[in-house]
Design a protein around this nucleic acid. Structure first.
Lengths: 102, 102
DNA sequence: AAATAAATATAGGACATACTATATATTTAA
DNA sequence: TTAAATATATAGTATGTCCTATATTTATTT
């Protein structure tokens, strides 16, 4: 991981939920979408345990198709995402706004 | 901590740097500003180790005044924050945008 | 002066997010 | 059919962020 001085880890499961709310995807596609945004692609040992955790909480549901597992949000995953987006925006919204204005 | 389904921890040191870029503050004041945004106030065992870590990396500098330690960003702290803000916005900017539009 | 309050400090624990490395299943190419 | 590529899975390690609990320091109050 690149060094930003402060630790920029976190919010992986949140970002996965958000991405799956836009499109049904498998783990590889999700990793690619995260790479577009973060600049670095999460490794297999990062993304698959996260997907497993979200599955076991029933926030996402995976269907195997060939060698891939395609994930979609469950209804409770959609609810959790809404709640989390609200929290995220009240926590960090001003930082994103300050950048937009600059 | 409240449960959001997905884990919403993270970015504490980043948020501390951002808050200190706006105003010189002590640990208690920082915890109060974080509470305004996140809804929950980080406990002493959370905030002080984070401040210690940022100090040991020379990203912030603390001056003791009575019972308080007032922290400010160092020049390398300002640089680290700029870099981190860019990364944060490219990682999560669209999430805030989607909320603003809704 | 003694008790209380405010601010900081640190030990010890849990967990998500990172990594590397290894392994397995399935598909595609040689 | 064998080899390579793709996608997933899991073990093991490290670190930041969370907590509770305890302790210390300094200022204020009685």
């Amino acid at each position: 991981m690149e060094d930003y001085g402060c630790d920029m880890r976190g919010m992986l499961s949140f970002q996965i939920l958000w991405l799956l709310s836009k499109k049904v995807m498998n783990g590889e596609e999700l990793a690619g979408e995260i790479e577009k945004r973060r600049g670095e692609k999460p490794k297999a040992g990062t993304i698959y345990p996260a997907l497993k955790g979200l599955s076991s909480k029933k926030l996402i549901f995976g269907s195997k198709n060939g060698k891939s597992v395609y994930y979609r949000l469950t209804p409770s995953g959609k609810k959790a995402l809404d709640h989390a987006v609200n929290h995220f925006c009240s926590s960090f919204g001003e930082i994103l706004e300050s950048k937009t204005k600059a």
